[in-house]
Every structure is written in C-alpha cells, then in structure tokens.
Design a protein around this nucleic acid. Sequence first.
DNA 1: GAGCACTGC
Length: 774
Amino acid sequence: MDQHRTKRRKTKANDPSVVKIGDKTISLNAFLEPPPAKPEEKTSSAPGENGPTTDNEKGELQNSTDEICEPVSKKRSQTDSTGPASRKKKYQDTPMLKARKALPIWAYRDEIKASLRGDNDILLVVGETGSGKSTQTPQFLCEESWCRRKKVRVKSDVVGVGGMIAITQPRRVAATTLAGRVAKEMGTPLGTANEGSVGYSVRFDHKVPKGTKIKFLTEGMLLQELLRDPNLRQYSAIIVDEIHERSVDVDLITGFLKQILASDKAGRGGIPLKVVIMSATADVEKIQDFFKPDDAPSPAPLKLLKIKGRQYPVEVKHTEKPVPDIQEALVKKIFDIHQHEPLPGDILAFLTGQEEIEAAQHLIEEHCATLASNVPKLLVCPLYGQLSIQAQQDAFQPAKTKYTRKVVLATNIAETSVTVPGVRYVIDCGKAKVKQFRARLGMESLLAKAISKSSAIQRTGRAGREGPGKCFRLYTSETYDELQDADLPEILRNDVLGAVLTMKARGINDILSFPLMDFPDIEAVEKALIQLYGLGALANDGSITNIGRKLALFPVSAPYGRVLLAAATPEFDCLLEVIDVIAVVTSGETIFHQIQTEEDSERDAIEEARKGLQRREGDILTFLTTMQRYAAENADRIAWCRARRVSVRNMRQALNIRRQLRGICVKEKLLSEPPPPGPQPFVPLSPERADALLRCFMRGFATKTALLAPDSSYVTVQGKHVVAIHPSSVLHGQKKEAIMFLEHVFTQKNYAKKVSAICADWVVEAIGNETNIS
DNA sequence: GAGCACTGC
C-alpha cells in the first residue's frame, strides 16, 4: 500500500531530464540531444509493416512468405493454367523451391522419408521454431509409395484406405494459414480451384478440395473424425504437430493412435497407419516411452530426429536478487532499456493479467508524461484476449510517430497464440495465470503461478524473431533453476468430463486402461463418471447411453448438451432460445466489454443502451435478449455492438455457433426444420417462457445452485460452500432466494458467474430427482 | 466490484 503511494508521488518529479522509479533515478540526457541520423533511418524502416495476428508457426511463415512467395505469385497465371501433373517440373529451381531447400529441415528430407519405409510406422521429430517442420514434413511424405490410396477388403466390404496425410494443429489460424502456405508451395493455391493437393478443416471452415493429399486440421476436428471412423481409413499418415503444448485433445489423439498402431490393422484392411509426432521442445523421453509397444520383448527405441531452428541469439539476464515488487521492477526495466538500448527495438513484457497490465500501463504513462518533448517516446500497448480486435491491432502496428519505442504489455497470449513484430527486448515476470479444476470441490481456480522452464524459454525466444535480442527475467537464475521443466498438461488441470465422454463415445469402456501420457487423478475421473451418469449419458453399468452419444456430437460441454436435449422435449419446448444462450456463453469469456475506463458521459450512454439488454431474471435471460436483439439488427451490427460495448468478435462467433447448433439439431431431428435465415424481429420472452428456459437449464446445472442463507450469503447446494455473485453478473449485489450459475471459479474469492434467479422449489425438486436416480 | 490462453459436425 505504502509503496504504491510512494511510486505515485515520485512520478510527479518535473525535471524532464530524469525519471525516478522507486529509489532509482534514470537520466535521460542521452535522449535530450537532437536525435542522430542513424536511428531515424532505422526507425523509418522499422520491421513488421503489417503485424500479423498469428500463431507462432504462422507468424514465422508469414515473415518468410512475403519474401519467398512474391516471384511465384507473379507466375500465378501460368501455374493456374497448368495441370497438377506438370506442376512438379515447373517448380524446379523456382525461388520458392530454393527457399524450401534453405530450411533447416530440408537436410533431413531423405532421412525422414526413409525412416517411415518398411515396417517402421512411427517417427518423432523435434524441430525448433523456424525449422520448417510443419510445412515440409507432410510434403516429404506425400510422395512416398505407402501414401497411395489402396482398395482393400475389410470384413466383406471392399473399401479404400489411405491416400491422405492429416496434420493436426492446436489452433485454427495455424491450420488454415499453414494449409495456405503449403498449397502455394505445391502450386495449388487454396480456394482458387475445386481440385488441389492441400486442404484444411477447422470449425466453421472446411476446404478439402478433390484430390487433397495433405489436410491440416485442428485437434478437435480429428477427434470428431475418430468418433465416426475409429480406424481413420482416409489417412495413410497422421502428423501430430505441437504435441508439447499437451492439450487434452492431443493427449486423447495420441491415445487413440497408440491403439491403432498396436491393433492387428484389420479395420484398415491390413494397411498400416504411419504416425509422426512433432514437438518444439526436446524433452521427448515421455513421448518415446509412451509409444513403445507394451508387449515388445526388447523394444527398439523410437526413431528420433532433432532439427535446429532458425532463431537469432537472445541474451538472457536474470536479476541478482528476488524482486519484491514486480510492477516497480518492470517499469524500472522498461525505462532502463529505453535509455540504454538503441532504436528501433520494441519491448514485449509478459504479465499475468489485465489488472496488472492496466496498472503497469498507468505507471509507465505517468512517467512518460514527464519526458521532454524531444525525448524518444514510449508507446504503451496492452495486449490480452478480451481486448477488442481494434485495440489488439495497435499492438501489432509499428509506432506511427518517429523516435517512438513501443512497449507491448501482454498476457500469455503473446507466448504462443500471436507474434508481435518488431520485438527485440522481452521482459518476463516469471508468472502466468493458470486455470485448475478442483474435482473435489467441483470448481475451478484461476490463480497466478510460476511458469515452467519451457515457458520461460518460449518467452525468451520472442526477442529473437527478427534479430539478436535480449531477455530480462524479473527473477534470479536460482529461481529459474527451480522452475518445473514443463507446464502441467491440460488433462491434469481441466475437468475431464469431456475427455471421459469422448472415450466412452468411442467405445472405451474401461477408462482406466486407456493409454494416456499422463493419467488424471482417479478422483477426477470418478467425479466425471458420476456427473455423466447424473446427466443420463451413462447407464448403470457405465456404458454409454443414446443420450451420451448425442452429447458427444455437440460442440459444447456435456451439461450444455443435456440442456439442448431437454429443450427439445414438449415439456420445455424452447430449443431456439437455448441455442441462442449457449451460443453466447460458449463464444468467449464474456460478450460485455468492461466500461470502467470510459469517460463519465460515455459510460452513462453505454449503460443506457445496455438497459435494453439486461433482464432482472439474470444473465441467461440477458444473454438471450442480447443475442435476439443483435440478430434482429439489420442495419449496422458493428455500430450496434460498439454503442453497447458488446464484443463484435464474440457475437460473430456466437452467430456461427448458433448456425452450427441449429444444423446439428435439424440433423439429429431435435428441430423439425431450420429456422428462416436472416434477421428476425425481436419479440421479448413472456415470463412463462422465461421460467421454462431456466427450468430447462436446471437439467444440466442442478448441482450448480445455491440458496440464500439467513446471513444473506449464498451457500451452494453441492458442497455447502459460500459463494458470491461475480461483479460481471446483472445479479451482482442482489439477494434472491436461490440462484443457478453456469460457472464456478475461485479467483479473489469463491465466485458464481453467469447467474440466474430461480425458485428454491426447483432445487428441492432437482435434488429429489438426483437422489431417486442414485 | 472483476475476467490466462486455446478448441469442437
């Protein structure tokens, strides 16, 4: 507290030639001289003309795409008119092929091809950033003879097996942009013809032209394909990229792949499935161990290739002593870099969350205000997920004014999801917020924790994308040495409800014997099984029910799926409304931007405009009203969103999800006909229908309820915890006899989020049902 | 009175 006040007071120093931070005084005299000519030249040729909002891999691709692809795109008309057969010759010695040959992985081309010939079906590739593994490996393999589609007999049918290579990505942008890149390299640009060798498949977007040999897809997409086709018959090979990120989906995929590899291949007519596992980090013992056949007498070690990346050197500096105040150390370091390091060279600082970012921005800007007008400026750009697209873009654009150094204050979003161009200096606070599911309490926590070594290395690497860089860690080298090697895989941090349902739907009855690199806590699995049983997804013997199979088809978690099924019954008959609500709540963190930082007059106007959306029944009805009003708007939806500070991006996503859910419901005969497309007039829900909607949600969320206690606190029905209504809820600060909430997170305290007022009787009813079942 | 990041027929 005191420290905070001290900092603020010191910023009022009005000598423009010095900046005081904490107990340190930094002289800016070097900057008070007229700027030399050299930095000016450099500044005007600042890198990163158009900052790509891209995934790591994609970012590095884009940087090289521009230089490599230009000559080829000039030749485009030629290529388009020539058939695929002559393609190969045409591209001999083109600049693009030269660029491909210059990639570190090119030297391993023959080795990669050779290592999957014959009986060897699996290969591990460790390729650092910039090695070209994601774009080149599938191209090397698709020329192999084992990659051709073959007609074989499976039981009594003759079926085609193989012909395609799948390559999975954790993120959609990565899948689509890598596909575009590889398509160009192979001379069949995506989307220009109905035929081509490269395709991709991500949610809401599928481009798989006739003749596709290489298909990029998100992990979730391949998992869905596994539900329909357990033997992955269309594929000759599966390449699992970015396995080190260890998402739940990738863990499930590797489990299924291991089973396919160990099977007698009868389901594939005897044709083997080749598997390539690719990682960016070198700690591969676990993966190697996982894929060793269980019954092999003396298992040959899995073939492993390590490929160097193309990364500039980054000098790492730790603090000598632990820093007592991260904010203070950060601001000090930023001005230190600003004074001593040449321009251009932007700074990327990793912080834990929005609050820390805003506080740091405030401090930096206060100090900046004291700089003389001819001193190089600092431009602070916050960067976190809930920021509007427009605000995020600022962090990717080079500073518009000369002699300005950009400081991007980012969350983990800049670690893997996006690449900020122009960065030469990284500051790493050593922490990140992680979500952890507490199975015992049936709730999540979101708290700042120490990052892993691998995460620290990843952050460091962000300084060496465009030239040699420096990374300043706001912790000691001893602290670094004590960090965990890798982050806890998601399957050990998440609710395993979805993972267990996916396994059950794929016919895995004995969950405990399913091969997983890391097996979740037995208690977490048990909780998931009990919850699935409570939702009607599992029968008494633990096998999957018809309800369970349907739930696995919905791209939403099991409780939401259960609400969808209930909504389609005559008892509730509110499926379209439920779809609208679920579309909104699963579109992102929240659809309402915070308006705390707005000017007073602006804030009043926004609050007034939002009144038309808010319903006193709670957040579910508010989300429904928002979606319906948004969908009814046919003039300018962007302006409509802006006036209410509603997230344009999340509402677009919600509309996509709505379309998708409606489509599935028609297919599954929950809806008799698709609703008419286009904007529909807004009709407010009657109180009776609103009741039906909420009671319908009780079918999935009966356990996420709380009753008002005599002391005015809310006590959860399950677990008897005291829970507070989150400030983002329209019900915040209100007392209702009972509440139902869609999310339960511990942050500052135990919070219920996405809250609705319900009747206490409904809870009694639902609990009665529960006990009757068990 | 407060929200790390992704993803899905």
